[in-house]
Nucleic acid binder design. Structure first.
Lengths: 149, 149
DNA sequence: CAGTATCCTTGCGGATACTG
DNA sequence: CAGTATCCGCAAGGATACTG
């Protein structure tokens, strides 16, 4: 899986910072870190973050319209979770006819910034992943004895 | 939430690349991209990837020993999922006494590289997230009418 | 319009016990 | 040692209907 737009981190950098990951994973007693991280893998979170990043401040329904397939329930849930962690801001215009708008917070933008490289890499290499899966599903799993590196 | 080691991307860059995210989210028919991304948010995936990144090639039980709290079942499951997507390689030494080793693939290392910035940012700002949650849970949710930016 | 309220299915994550 | 096999609770995600 070749050279896609490569990060500025060296392998050693990675392994050094990787220790931070390790430590951070250990003392995450309340699970906040893990749950914030989970926004990366959730079904709709990243899409909502992206949409707000692209279009600025939007109404509830406007977000829904721009995201194919999301239900009202999931949109509300996703927005609540993101708001809870401070990634999204909610503005209630408290008019007689409901009017609420959402926007990315600074924190949310920082999150998006750090998601972009990962996501673009996944998209660029998705064919590779598909092939890996086919091999795996067809029993090519588990190479035989290999020398230690 | 202040200036932690900042990415090299500008806001405009982010929004530009963000379009890639949007497109990629749309035509992910088989869900492969989403499932690869899900490794980021899974309970154990990132820990396994990190451990293999740090220590190189390890036996099943060695990984388990370095990861606090994981059960055999979850370790096996996690390794299978990662292997399936080509992030981890499995080497079976096919001895009479079972002997299997795992290592990060090149793909896996690339994944880790792109996870490091996100994760270190989360760790650095976890207090901020905790505070955001407290405010939210105490009903400070939803600011009142705010001017559009 | 911006949500709740129900109900349902699926899979994650964990505990425990067993096997080649 | 490196796994399976069960059983469990829970939350994610979705479909549908209703409300101030």
């Amino acid at each position: 899986m070749g050279d896609t737009a490569v990060s500025t981190l060296s392998r050693d950098d990675v392994l050094t910072y990787s220790q931070t990951v390790c430590d951070g994973l250990r003392d995450d007693d309340d699970g906040v870190r893990r749950e914030v991280l989970a926004h990366a893998g959730n079904r709709w979170s990243l899409g909502v973050i992206h949409t707000l990043g692209m279009y600025g401040q939007l109404r509830h329904a406007e977000i829904g319209r721009r995201m194919h397939g999301i239900t009202q329930r999931m949109l509300t849930r996703t927005l609540r979770h993101l708001e809870r962690d401070g990634l999204v801001l909610r503005y209630d215009f408290e008019e007689t006819v409901p009017h609420v708008e959402y926007a990315l917070s600074e924190t949310g933008l920082e999150f998006l910034v750090r998601m972009v490289p990962l996501w673009t890499w996944i998209v660029a290499n998705s064919d590779g992943f598909r092939q890996a899966r086919q091999s795996f599903d067809q029993g090519d799993a588990g190479q035989e004895a290999s020398p230690r590196p």
